[in-house]
Amino acid sequence: MDWQSFWVTIKMALATCVILLPFALILARIMARHEFYGKWLVEVLIILPLILPPTVIGYYMLILIGSNGVLGSFSETYLNVPLAFHMSGLVLASVIFNLPFAIYPIQRAFAAIESNLLEAGALCGLSRWQSFVKIELPLVWPGIVSALVLVFTHTLGEFGIILMVGGSIPGETRTLSIAIYDRVQAFDWNGANTMSLFLLLISSTVIYCLGFLSRLQYGKKDGPHIV
């Protein structure tokens, strides 16, 4: 078992969830509630990572975050943080690649809130922020859980984009998926099998735990389920 790769994978998955969640919440609410000029373009940009092959996204990401890329040179010069072939670059790529997985479940949950509930909130004297915290957030909770499950498990299994942007540097960019690939290339079937089973176990546990969490809100009897 390659524990170094395991911790790289977990670090990347957690960082992706933490960075993506607030961003996805804001964007999902805007997309669900508002009509604006150019909305179709934002929709296309969000869905693009689902349609494009990971290697294509990886290639353009590499161009963007490489030392000569706009983002890469900016980050190196002003923030002193190199992106290409580093964990920070992996996380950035993972955030972009997971945009649709984070936004769509939350957007659907926001869209499902009936407008008269928000009106009832206003007539209870709630401010917009209070209404968001006390009405909207609890009601989109199952959507948030679905998004977290999808993003976390999807990040665990990312391969193409990770290989393009991060390569396979032990302890920095080699994730479990890359390590499994390396083991197979080296005909180490036992090693590949152990790590694959481990990934399967982690993914299943995460889905089960978050599914349980999503049911806590309304009580077990009527709890919403992960979509």
Binding site: E114, N116, L117, E119, A120, G121, A122, L123, C124, G125, L126, S127, I135, P138, L139, Q217, Y218
Partner: peptide
């Protein structure tokens, strides 16, 4: 004056109770 600042209450046709 927005609804939240008015001294007004409303019972909706489908009640609009907060399900959570």
């Amino acid at each position: 004056l927005p609804a939240r600042h008015r001294q007004v209450s409303m019972v909706f046709q489908d009640y609009a109770l907060f399900p959570h």
